[in-house]
Design a protein around this nucleic acid. Structure first.
Length: 270
DNA sequence: GTAGGATGCTAAC
DNA sequence: TTAGCCTCCTACG
């Protein structure tokens, strides 16, 4: 379930469980064995998250574990004692009280501080990083002929937004996903950025994506709650052919930048 | 049992 | 633009 909120939540959860203590590090599946051996027994010092990239810090001399979950990567936490790992566990970190298993990541690698910096440098501002703001993103969006739906998925433009947040934030602002970035006005972008900050912070808090306003919840509208493994309450994501919560128009879907875009053709005409 | 899809991204053409 | 990567789960025979 990896959009930016998941990664920032994982950073917090790792720090809570392992921060400041020595940990056992293994790679039952084998692909991270050499680095795991290097890290085993060291102190878990710090965490960082930028967009969909997670960094686990083991100190200046040792470096960072760089994790990117990709589409199917998953982290599972549990209490000690850790059970025998299954053979798909790429990385296991364990302390006296807790363990975590990482499966199926696109990236799990031990990197240096300069390598970490290079990753930050190629990522755009992240609505979940307190020091970031939408200014640099606006500079790119406002000059681009690319559709706003594609720009929101471009991690060089804005880091952490994925297919759910892109669809939902465009719906919440009534914006036609196919508009070119350069046709947006400043006020629209500022509103999108501010909304992403709020939505994604709530996503970190709840560990899932909810985007419907209080007046549009299932209880408020007297409709059944969403039944979907994704879990959250949303307006359009994966609701193709279902009626829009606000206007009852059929939600549409189409591939855009190799992913399925969802939108309401009636509500999103701006 | 098999196929296909999923909240992602990159390298190669 | 496409294939490829990595895992898990559902739908369909």
């Amino acid at each position: 379930m990896p959009e930016g909120h998941t990664i920032h939540r994982l950073a917090e959860d790792h720090l809570d469980r392992f921060g400041g203590g020595a940990v056992r590090v293994t790679s039952p599946q084998g692909k991270f064995s050499d680095s795991a051996a290097l890290l085993d027994g060291r102190v878990f010092e710090s965490v960082d998250a930028h967009g969909k990239h997670l960094f686990l810090g083991f100190g200046e001399d040792t470096g960072w574990v760089h994790i990117h979950l990709g589409l199917f990567g998953k982290v599972a936490f549990g209490d000690a004692p850790a059970p025998p790992p299954t053979d798909t566990v790429r990385l296991r970190i364990a302390s006296g009280t807790a363990y975590m298993d990482l499966r199926g990541p696109t990236t799990c690698a031990l990197i240096t501080e300069p390598e970490k910096r290079a990753i930050h440098d190629r990522l755009g501002p992240d609505p979940l990083r307190p020091a970031d703001d939408g200014e640099k993103a606006w500079a790119r969006v406002s000059r681009s002929r690319t559709t706003v739906a594609a720009l929101l998925m471009d991690q060089k433009v804005i880091a952490g937004v994925g297919n759910v947040y892109r669809a939902e934030v465009l719906f919440r602002h009534g914006i036609d996903p196919y508009r070119a970035g350069k046709d947006l006005v400043r006020r629209e972008w500022d509103a999108i950025w501010a909304d992403l900050v709020a939505l994604m912070r709530e996503g970190v808090r709840n560990n899932r994506i909810d985007t419907v306003r209080p007046e549009h919840t299932p209880e408020a509208m007297n409709r059944p709650p969403r039944v979907d493994d994704h879990g959250g309450e949303v307006y359009v994501y994966r609701r193709a052919q279902l009626p829009c919560h606000l206007c009852a128009t059929e939600i549409r879907t189409a591939p855009l930048a190799a992913r399925n875009l969802f939108w309401c053709p009636t509500c999103q005409r701006n």
